[in-house]
Design a protein around this nucleic acid. Structure first.
Lengths: 160, 160
DNA sequence: ATGGGTGCAAATCCTTTGCACTCGG
DNA sequence: CCGAGTGCAAAGGATTTGCACCCAT
Protein backbone atom coordinates (compact mmCIF):
# COMPACT_ATOMS: atom_id res chain seq x y z
CA UNK A 1 0.00 0.00 0.00
CA UNK A 2 1.25 3.48 -0.90
CA UNK A 3 1.11 6.17 1.71
CA UNK A 4 0.30 9.73 0.77
CA UNK A 5 3.03 12.05 1.98
CA UNK A 6 0.84 15.10 2.04
CA UNK A 7 -1.73 13.37 4.15
CA UNK A 8 0.87 12.14 6.60
CA UNK A 9 2.24 15.64 6.89
CA UNK A 10 -1.23 16.95 7.66
CA UNK A 11 -1.66 14.26 10.29
CA UNK A 12 1.63 15.28 11.84
CA UNK A 13 0.52 18.91 12.06
CA UNK A 14 -2.63 17.78 13.78
CA UNK A 15 -0.65 15.55 16.11
CA UNK A 16 1.51 18.50 17.12
CA UNK A 17 -1.47 20.77 17.68
CA UNK A 18 -3.31 18.11 19.66
CA UNK A 19 -0.31 17.81 21.91
CA UNK A 20 0.19 21.57 22.26
CA UNK A 21 3.56 21.34 20.58
CA UNK A 22 4.83 24.16 18.37
CA UNK A 23 4.63 23.48 14.65
CA UNK A 24 8.08 24.69 13.65
CA UNK A 25 9.31 24.72 10.10
CA UNK A 26 12.21 22.48 11.12
CA UNK A 27 9.82 19.81 12.29
CA UNK A 28 7.85 20.05 9.11
CA UNK A 29 11.00 19.92 7.01
CA UNK A 30 12.18 16.73 8.69
CA UNK A 31 8.75 15.15 8.41
CA UNK A 32 8.51 16.07 4.73
CA UNK A 33 11.89 14.58 3.98
CA UNK A 34 10.70 11.23 5.29
CA UNK A 35 7.11 11.33 4.08
CA UNK A 36 8.07 12.16 0.52
CA UNK A 37 11.17 10.03 0.23
CA UNK A 38 9.45 6.67 0.05
CA UNK A 39 12.80 5.21 1.02
CA UNK A 40 14.47 4.09 4.20
CA UNK A 41 16.64 7.02 5.17
CA UNK A 42 19.27 7.38 7.84
CA UNK A 43 19.34 10.40 10.13
CA UNK A 44 22.16 11.74 8.00
CA UNK A 45 20.18 11.19 4.78
CA UNK A 46 17.31 13.09 6.30
CA UNK A 47 19.50 16.01 7.31
CA UNK A 48 20.85 16.02 3.75
CA UNK A 49 17.39 16.01 2.17
CA UNK A 50 16.29 18.84 4.40
CA UNK A 51 19.40 20.85 3.57
CA UNK A 52 18.73 20.45 -0.13
CA UNK A 53 15.14 21.58 0.32
CA UNK A 54 14.20 25.23 0.13
CA UNK A 55 14.40 26.01 3.83
CA UNK A 56 17.84 26.15 5.41
CA UNK A 57 19.58 23.18 6.98
CA UNK A 58 18.46 21.77 10.32
CA UNK A 59 20.77 20.92 13.21
CA UNK A 60 21.53 17.28 13.84
CA UNK A 61 20.09 17.41 17.32
CA UNK A 62 16.81 18.71 15.96
CA UNK A 63 16.65 15.95 13.40
CA UNK A 64 16.97 13.35 16.13
CA UNK A 65 14.53 15.15 18.41
CA UNK A 66 11.98 15.36 15.63
CA UNK A 67 12.48 11.72 14.71
CA UNK A 68 11.65 10.82 18.27
CA UNK A 69 8.40 12.72 17.92
CA UNK A 70 7.56 11.14 14.60
CA UNK A 71 8.24 7.64 15.83
CA UNK A 72 6.30 8.35 19.01
CA UNK A 73 3.34 9.56 16.97
CA UNK A 74 3.37 6.35 14.97
CA UNK A 75 3.76 8.21 11.69
CA UNK A 76 7.27 6.98 11.13
CA UNK A 77 8.83 3.59 11.75
CA UNK A 78 12.36 3.14 12.96
CA UNK A 79 14.46 0.30 11.57
CA UNK A 80 17.78 -1.10 12.62
CA UNK A 81 19.25 -3.13 9.80
CA UNK A 82 22.40 -3.77 11.77
CA UNK A 83 24.42 -1.17 9.91
CA UNK A 84 25.40 0.66 13.05
CA UNK A 85 22.78 3.34 12.61
CA UNK A 86 19.01 3.53 12.25
CA UNK A 87 16.82 4.12 9.26
CA UNK A 88 13.38 5.71 9.10
CA UNK A 89 10.41 5.04 6.92
CA UNK A 90 6.98 6.70 6.60
CA UNK A 91 3.97 4.81 7.89
CA UNK A 92 3.79 2.38 10.73
CA UNK A 93 2.49 -0.98 11.69
CA UNK A 94 1.66 -0.08 15.24
CA UNK A 95 0.64 3.53 15.36
CA UNK A 96 -2.63 5.15 14.48
CA UNK A 97 -1.01 6.64 11.45
CA UNK A 98 -1.89 3.93 9.00
CA UNK A 99 0.38 1.66 7.06
CA UNK A 100 0.40 -2.07 7.65
CA UNK A 101 2.85 -4.70 8.75
CA UNK A 102 5.39 -5.50 6.11
CA UNK A 103 8.79 -7.10 5.98
CA UNK A 104 12.08 -6.09 4.43
CA UNK A 105 14.53 -7.71 2.06
CA UNK A 106 17.91 -6.00 2.29
CA UNK A 107 20.39 -6.50 -0.51
CA UNK A 108 23.79 -7.50 0.87
CA UNK A 109 25.43 -6.14 -2.22
CA UNK A 110 23.88 -2.74 -2.87
CA UNK A 111 21.82 -2.11 0.25
CA UNK A 112 18.52 -1.71 -1.61
CA UNK A 113 15.43 -2.50 0.42
CA UNK A 114 12.50 -4.43 -1.07
CA UNK A 115 9.30 -4.79 0.90
CA UNK A 116 6.51 -7.30 0.94
CA UNK A 117 3.70 -8.30 3.20
CA UNK A 118 1.74 -11.46 3.68
CA UNK A 119 -1.09 -12.14 6.06
CA UNK A 120 -0.41 -15.79 6.39
CA UNK A 121 3.14 -15.04 7.45
CA UNK A 122 1.98 -12.53 10.04
CA UNK A 123 -0.45 -15.01 11.49
CA UNK A 124 2.10 -17.77 11.59
CA UNK A 125 4.60 -15.59 13.38
CA UNK A 126 2.10 -14.62 16.04
CA UNK A 127 1.09 -18.23 16.46
CA UNK A 128 4.62 -19.53 16.80
CA UNK A 129 5.41 -16.95 19.45
CA UNK A 130 2.35 -17.98 21.42
CA UNK A 131 3.44 -21.58 21.21
CA UNK A 132 6.43 -20.73 23.38
CA UNK A 133 4.23 -18.85 25.84
CA UNK A 134 5.28 -15.48 24.50
CA UNK A 135 2.79 -12.68 23.98
CA UNK A 136 3.83 -10.98 20.76
CA UNK A 137 3.38 -7.28 20.28
CA UNK A 138 5.32 -6.54 17.14
CA UNK A 139 8.17 -8.06 15.21
CA UNK A 140 10.90 -7.43 12.68
CA UNK A 141 11.73 -9.75 9.85
CA UNK A 142 14.70 -8.87 7.73
CA UNK A 143 15.84 -11.03 4.87
CA UNK A 144 19.37 -10.55 3.59
CA UNK A 145 20.41 -11.67 0.14
CA UNK A 146 20.58 -10.31 -3.38
CA UNK A 147 18.05 -7.98 -4.93
CA UNK A 148 16.92 -8.59 -8.50
CA UNK A 149 19.28 -6.04 -9.94
CA UNK A 150 22.33 -7.47 -8.19
CA UNK A 151 21.44 -11.03 -9.14
CA UNK A 152 21.54 -9.96 -12.77
CA UNK A 153 24.64 -7.85 -12.67
CA UNK A 154 26.57 -10.45 -10.74
CA UNK A 155 24.88 -13.84 -11.20
CA UNK A 156 27.55 -15.76 -9.34
CA UNK A 157 27.87 -13.48 -6.38
CA UNK A 158 27.27 -15.17 -3.08
CA UNK A 159 25.32 -13.04 -0.69
CA UNK A 160 27.53 -12.25 2.27
CA UNK B 1 18.68 -28.05 19.99
CA UNK B 2 21.29 -27.84 22.75
CA UNK B 3 24.86 -27.19 21.70
CA UNK B 4 27.71 -28.73 23.63
CA UNK B 5 30.05 -26.01 24.82
CA UNK B 6 33.02 -28.30 25.18
CA UNK B 7 32.64 -29.53 21.66
CA UNK B 8 32.38 -26.03 20.28
CA UNK B 9 35.49 -25.07 22.18
CA UNK B 10 37.34 -28.01 20.68
CA UNK B 11 36.17 -27.00 17.23
CA UNK B 12 37.43 -23.49 17.84
CA UNK B 13 40.89 -24.80 18.79
CA UNK B 14 40.96 -26.80 15.60
CA UNK B 15 39.81 -23.80 13.62
CA UNK B 16 42.67 -21.73 15.05
CA UNK B 17 45.23 -24.44 14.34
CA UNK B 18 43.92 -24.96 10.82
CA UNK B 19 44.37 -21.28 10.17
CA UNK B 20 47.80 -21.09 11.78
CA UNK B 21 46.51 -18.74 14.43
CA UNK B 22 47.92 -18.82 17.95
CA UNK B 23 45.71 -20.48 20.53
CA UNK B 24 46.00 -17.94 23.31
CA UNK B 25 44.30 -18.35 26.63
CA UNK B 26 42.49 -15.04 26.06
CA UNK B 27 40.86 -16.43 22.95
CA UNK B 28 39.85 -19.56 24.75
CA UNK B 29 38.50 -17.59 27.68
CA UNK B 30 36.29 -15.47 25.44
CA UNK B 31 35.10 -18.51 23.51
CA UNK B 32 34.30 -20.37 26.71
CA UNK B 33 32.32 -17.48 28.09
CA UNK B 34 30.03 -17.63 25.07
CA UNK B 35 29.92 -21.37 24.55
CA UNK B 36 28.99 -22.11 28.14
CA UNK B 37 26.67 -19.20 28.75
CA UNK B 38 23.78 -20.46 26.68
CA UNK B 39 22.56 -16.90 26.68
CA UNK B 40 22.80 -13.93 24.35
CA UNK B 41 25.63 -11.90 25.81
CA UNK B 42 26.87 -8.44 24.96
CA UNK B 43 30.56 -7.76 24.52
CA UNK B 44 30.52 -6.25 27.97
CA UNK B 45 28.82 -9.32 29.45
CA UNK B 46 31.47 -11.48 27.90
CA UNK B 47 34.30 -9.40 29.31
CA UNK B 48 32.59 -9.67 32.69
CA UNK B 49 32.23 -13.43 32.48
CA UNK B 50 35.85 -13.81 31.51
CA UNK B 51 36.96 -11.57 34.35
CA UNK B 52 35.02 -13.69 36.84
CA UNK B 53 36.63 -16.84 35.44
CA UNK B 54 39.88 -18.17 36.84
CA UNK B 55 42.20 -16.53 34.33
CA UNK B 56 42.66 -12.80 34.61
CA UNK B 57 40.53 -10.24 32.76
CA UNK B 58 40.87 -9.69 29.05
CA UNK B 59 41.16 -6.32 27.36
CA UNK B 60 38.12 -4.96 25.55
CA UNK B 61 39.95 -4.85 22.25
CA UNK B 62 40.82 -8.51 22.53
CA UNK B 63 37.23 -9.41 23.27
CA UNK B 64 36.11 -7.70 20.09
CA UNK B 65 38.94 -9.13 18.05
CA UNK B 66 38.15 -12.62 19.26
CA UNK B 67 34.46 -12.15 18.60
CA UNK B 68 35.34 -11.31 15.01
CA UNK B 69 37.18 -14.60 14.76
CA UNK B 70 34.38 -16.57 16.33
CA UNK B 71 31.75 -15.04 14.11
CA UNK B 72 33.98 -15.55 11.09
CA UNK B 73 34.45 -19.19 11.98
CA UNK B 74 30.71 -19.65 12.16
CA UNK B 75 30.87 -20.87 15.74
CA UNK B 76 29.17 -17.82 17.13
CA UNK B 77 26.27 -15.78 15.80
CA UNK B 78 26.05 -12.05 16.14
CA UNK B 79 22.70 -10.43 16.87
CA UNK B 80 21.58 -6.85 16.84
CA UNK B 81 18.38 -6.50 18.79
CA UNK B 82 18.33 -2.76 18.27
CA UNK B 83 19.63 -2.02 21.75
CA UNK B 84 22.55 -0.01 20.44
CA UNK B 85 25.03 -2.83 20.87
CA UNK B 86 25.42 -6.40 19.67
CA UNK B 87 24.83 -9.71 21.38
CA UNK B 88 26.53 -13.02 20.75
CA UNK B 89 25.25 -16.55 20.92
CA UNK B 90 26.93 -19.94 20.46
CA UNK B 91 26.13 -21.89 17.31
CA UNK B 92 25.27 -20.57 13.91
CA UNK B 93 22.80 -20.95 11.13
CA UNK B 94 25.21 -20.32 8.33
CA UNK B 95 28.64 -21.51 9.35
CA UNK B 96 30.05 -24.97 9.32
CA UNK B 97 29.85 -25.01 13.07
CA UNK B 98 26.40 -26.51 13.42
CA UNK B 99 23.30 -25.09 14.95
CA UNK B 100 20.21 -24.45 12.88
CA UNK B 101 18.05 -21.51 11.99
CA UNK B 102 15.95 -20.29 14.87
CA UNK B 103 14.13 -17.13 15.75
CA UNK B 104 14.04 -14.93 18.82
CA UNK B 105 11.34 -13.56 21.07
CA UNK B 106 12.65 -10.60 23.06
CA UNK B 107 10.75 -9.52 26.15
CA UNK B 108 10.13 -5.79 26.05
CA UNK B 109 9.84 -5.75 29.80
CA UNK B 110 12.76 -7.79 31.12
CA UNK B 111 14.88 -8.40 28.03
CA UNK B 112 14.76 -12.18 28.26
CA UNK B 113 15.21 -14.02 24.99
CA UNK B 114 13.13 -17.07 24.09
CA UNK B 115 13.95 -19.07 21.00
CA UNK B 116 11.98 -21.29 18.69
CA UNK B 117 12.34 -22.73 15.26
CA UNK B 118 9.90 -23.95 12.68
CA UNK B 119 10.58 -25.42 9.28
CA UNK B 120 7.37 -24.27 7.74
CA UNK B 121 8.16 -20.71 8.76
CA UNK B 122 11.65 -20.93 7.26
CA UNK B 123 10.27 -22.21 4.01
CA UNK B 124 7.58 -19.59 3.84
CA UNK B 125 10.07 -16.82 4.43
CA UNK B 126 12.33 -18.02 1.62
CA UNK B 127 9.36 -18.37 -0.67
CA UNK B 128 7.99 -14.91 0.02
CA UNK B 129 11.36 -13.36 -0.66
CA UNK B 130 11.59 -15.13 -3.98
CA UNK B 131 8.14 -13.86 -4.85
CA UNK B 132 9.53 -10.34 -4.93
CA UNK B 133 12.49 -11.46 -7.06
CA UNK B 134 14.84 -11.46 -4.10
CA UNK B 135 17.39 -14.21 -3.58
CA UNK B 136 17.44 -14.84 0.16
CA UNK B 137 20.61 -15.84 1.92
CA UNK B 138 19.75 -15.53 5.57
CA UNK B 139 17.27 -13.64 7.69
CA UNK B 140 16.50 -12.35 11.14
CA UNK B 141 13.13 -12.55 12.80
CA UNK B 142 12.72 -10.87 16.13
CA UNK B 143 9.44 -10.84 17.96
CA UNK B 144 8.98 -8.26 20.69
CA UNK B 145 6.40 -8.66 23.39
CA UNK B 146 6.07 -10.15 26.86
CA UNK B 147 7.73 -13.33 28.01
CA UNK B 148 5.76 -15.79 30.08
CA UNK B 149 7.20 -14.55 33.36
CA UNK B 150 6.38 -10.92 32.65
CA UNK B 151 2.86 -11.74 31.49
CA UNK B 152 2.23 -13.29 34.88
CA UNK B 153 3.85 -10.67 37.04
CA UNK B 154 2.10 -7.87 35.20
CA UNK B 155 -0.97 -9.23 33.43
CA UNK B 156 -2.17 -5.86 32.25
CA UNK B 157 1.13 -4.53 30.97
CA UNK B 158 1.12 -3.57 27.36
CA UNK B 159 4.24 -4.52 25.54
CA UNK B 160 6.01 -1.36 24.44
C1' DA C 1 5.53 37.71 26.65
C1' DT C 2 7.32 33.11 27.33
C1' DG C 3 7.85 28.25 27.35
C1' DG C 4 9.46 25.17 24.36
C1' DG C 5 12.49 24.56 20.28
C1' DT C 6 16.81 25.11 18.10
C1' DG C 7 21.79 25.09 17.22
C1' DC C 8 26.27 24.27 18.58
C1' DA C 9 29.51 21.88 20.85
C1' DA C 10 30.70 18.90 24.41
C1' DA C 11 29.55 14.42 26.15
C1' DT C 12 28.20 9.34 25.77
C1' DC C 13 28.09 4.77 24.23
C1' DC C 14 29.77 0.96 21.72
C1' DT C 15 33.38 -0.44 18.86
C1' DT C 16 37.82 0.06 16.34
C1' DT C 17 42.61 1.27 15.86
C1' DG C 18 47.68 2.61 16.75
C1' DC C 19 51.52 1.22 19.05
C1' DA C 20 54.93 -0.72 22.29
C1' DC C 21 55.31 -4.90 24.63
C1' DT C 22 54.55 -10.06 25.37
C1' DC C 23 53.94 -14.76 24.12
C1' DG C 24 52.74 -19.08 21.48
C1' DG C 25 54.68 -22.08 17.95
C1' DC D 1 63.64 -16.32 18.00
C1' DC D 2 59.60 -13.70 15.65
C1' DG D 3 55.47 -12.58 13.83
C1' DA D 4 51.09 -12.39 15.61
C1' DG D 5 48.40 -11.23 19.87
C1' DT D 6 47.50 -8.26 23.73
C1' DG D 7 46.51 -4.14 26.59
C1' DC D 8 45.99 0.59 26.97
C1' DA D 9 44.48 4.61 25.52
C1' DA D 10 43.22 7.46 21.87
C1' DA D 11 40.21 7.64 17.82
C1' DG D 12 35.66 6.92 15.52
C1' DG D 13 30.75 7.09 14.26
C1' DA D 14 26.02 7.54 15.75
C1' DT D 15 23.18 9.59 18.98
C1' DT D 16 22.24 12.49 23.21
C1' DT D 17 22.58 16.37 26.20
C1' DG D 18 23.65 21.16 28.34
C1' DC D 19 22.93 25.70 27.62
C1' DA D 20 22.23 30.42 25.68
C1' DC D 21 19.37 32.31 22.25
C1' DC D 22 15.11 32.41 19.14
C1' DC D 23 10.42 31.74 17.58
C1' DA D 24 5.52 29.79 17.41
C1' DT D 25 1.52 30.49 20.13
Amino acid sequence: MKVDGGQLLETFRRYLRDHSLPVTHQRLAVAEAIFFSGDHLSAEDIAGQVAKGGAGPVGTATVYRTLELLVGSGLVTEHDFGEGFKRYEPGSSGGEGGGQPHEHCICSSCGAVTEFSNDRLERMIALLAEEVAFRPHHHRLEIYGLCRRCQQSNPLARAR
